[in-house]
Design a protein around this nucleic acid. Structure first.
Lengths: 216, 216
DNA sequence: GAATTAATCGAACGTTCGTTTTATTATCAC
DNA sequence: GTGATAATAAAACGAACGTTCGATTAATTC
């Protein structure tokens, strides 16, 4: 009974976070119990409350930090003094890379909005909207300069984001396609979709072999 | 106490299904309780078990029928003796129409896989795979005839499906864009994405007004 | 080394869950 | 009208939940 020898608060908290992301991604937030999470971490459920006051606070923290991480990554990746095509290219690359690396956290971030209380939900949605707005701005500017040919920027932005984020649904590291190949292909598809004129972006062929329809 | 005057089994079952789809879409399957569902329907929780033996069976039924409905709709919509571009066009139109009309059921079908038992999950995944294979076949054939220019059919198929299905995330009937406009735009984007040669599909401009970046 | 703080444990709280059981009433079939 | 079936209600079962509380031990600070 009582404090376990060798316990370290920072390590335990990090373990809790990691285990929570995995368990929520796999079972769902509502289906994951605190006892299950605690067992995964190697503590009793009561110990979790030393780090997170409520189950929802744990979820909110994971989701908020995911969005903050995305915003930060995009801020670092966004090229200065770049034209629309370059900006879009950077956006796509960053988006794919970020989400592939955090498949489970992305899963949680996209699928557990319903379990947040209204105020917290508002916060997360605001962050998502801000990120989406970045893409809309790129598309609008590109359309205005004639770099892109877009029917509706709002719709196009959402369609692209859904398409790109959807990579986490099917991509599995170590399988047929590499991250580089996937990224290049998504970029190529994106540029075509927005009607970018040939030559406004570098879209080297991502595959050395002939097209085939190997099943996923 | 006991049977309510005017009760009708068929009507009650239909009401249960409808209410379940709405509640699950809104709160999530795990968060929705049978008492909550029963209250929404206007019966006691025990009554639900006359129609569905378990909560999971209810979910499975909703998801299975959603997929069956989609397969049936595609079967009816698929044109006979059509080329790849026409097939893809029909696929996109059917996909968008079907999902927009069943936003909540789609939500449930996509987000609650985790709550199914392994055997049931396998069944649903098989149905999804079959539907996806239809698109892959269209893309592959189109690529072989040179109608489309595709880097990787498997990836492209998944990207398209994620993009199109994602319409339910943002589309709201009665708002800025009509279903026809949305459908036309998704079709236009799809054709570009797959590198369909101009002239191989009818992509009339879906908007009469200038492109703008009105926020969603 | 003593006091304080940190990190855990075990037990328990109050509530809710999916589900079953029994009883009751309504509707249908003959 | 009688018997069978359908459709519901009310009560309860056994289990599990998120969380709190008090106690205990480990680590840190002075």
């Amino acid at each position: 009974m009582a404090r376990t020898t060798g316990s370290d608060g920072e390590k335990t908290e990090a373990t809790i976070r990691g285990a929570a992301v995995n368990l929520i991604a796999r079972f769902g937030y509502e289906a994951m119990s605190m006892r299950q999470l605690a067992a995964e971490v190697g503590v009793q459920a009561a110990a979790l409350y030393r780090y997170f006051p409520t189950k929802e606070e744990l979820l909110f923290t994971l989701m908020r930090e995911h969005m903050e991480g995305l915003a930060t990554a995009w801020e670092a990746a966004r090229p200065a003094d770049a034209d629309s095509a370059q900006l879009l290219s950077a956006y796509v690359r960053n988006h794919i890379a970020f989400h592939i690396e955090r498949r489970h956290a992305t899963h949680v971030s996209n699928m557990e909005l319903r379990s947040l209380s209204p105020e917290r939900l508002t916060q997360i949605l605001r962050m998502r909207t801000a990120y989406e707005k970045e893409l809309r701005t790129i598309l609008r500017d590109g359309a205005e300069t004639g770099t892109f040919s877009i029917d509706d920027t709002g719709l196009t932005a959402m369609a692209l984001i859904q398409m790109m984020t959807g990579v986490i649904v099917w991509f599995r590291p170590g399988e047929r396609l590499s991250i580089a190949e996937v990224t290049a292909t998504y970029l190529s598809m994106t540029m075509r979709l927005v009607g970018a004129r040939i030559g406004t972006y570098s879209a080297a062929r991502p595959f050395g072999r002939a097209k085939d329809a190997v099943a996923f």
